[in-house]
Design a protein around this nucleic acid. Structure first.
Lengths: 135, 135
DNA sequence: GGTGACTTTGACAACCATTTTCATTTGCGC
DNA sequence: GCGCAAATGAAAATGGTTGTCAAAGTCACC
């Protein structure tokens, strides 16, 4: 029955970068899957709770999910143009955060860290001419 | 005329931690200020654009604002219980992010980093008994 | 002092992702 | 086959944020 959950997970596994709930839903419907938006949200949350996928918020407040290779704590280097994502680990940062926290008397330190940039491919593609589509 | 904007800014200055737009609006109304929600949002955005206040998204997608001491790039150590905020600088992290980015061929690196924890006062107040409210 | 152009304001409606509700369906044990 | 409990999904509710638009305020200029 939690077949739906697996289906949702599968969609994420097939994706390169982060996908929004609406996005996943749309794709599944497009593929002919009979599933409700509600279920997608529930599946995504369940997956996130069990640590099977990573969640993060986009700048416009949308939640995006991604099936990550490792279940360990890690961060993401995301291309702001194509969405390609690289998982990175930063032991030094973890320690730094801990240290900063303790230094100020804080306990149970957690942190959120995401790195954004333009990947090689996109930065090449973006400035061939000298009309950088300046918005 | 941009008196409203100053008023909004003032509210933030009087606050210790991050405040949501709705929150600021409610407080201003409570103080008797005649201001509309729309205006509060606009003021907040304007302030954020000009770098007078820092913005970040809470886990539930709400935008929260804070008038920060320095206009420089810095991060926040936020108490998840009382909201008290400490501004921290982490040159090492900035460099690390840059390095990781270049290493993967990314350019125009930016990053978001927030540290959450329980401050000394709150952690003391929270565990008087031995019922750690383990969710 | 008056007038008109332009900007700011704010009430209200529109948006939209997410959540809740609730009736129906499905799986499973008995 | 029956009934219960969990899962599902359609639709409505929620709630923060943004857009619309007319009214009010400012200011320059006559």
């Amino acid at each position: 029955m939690s077949n739906r959950r697996d289906a949702v997970h599968a969609v994420l596994r097939q994706s390169e970068g982060f996908r929004s709930a609406q996005d996943v839903y749309a794709e599944m419907r497009a593929e002919g899957a009979k599933i409700g938006l509600t279920t997608v949200y529930r599946a995504l949350q369940a997956l996130a709770d069990t640590g099977h996928v990573d969640v993060l918020r986009t700048d416009d407040g949308e939640s995006v999910y991604r099936a990550c290779a490792s279940g360990d704590h890690h961060h993401h280097l995301v291309c702001r143009t194509c969405g390609r994502t690289v998982e990175v680990a930063g032991p030094a940062v973890e320690r730094w955060a801990e240290a900063i926290g303790s230094e100020h008397g804080f306990t149970e330190i957690t942190h959120t860290l995401e790195i954004f940039g333009t990947c090689a491919a996109c930065s090449t593609a973006a400035k061939p001419a000298r009309t950088p589509s300046r918005a």
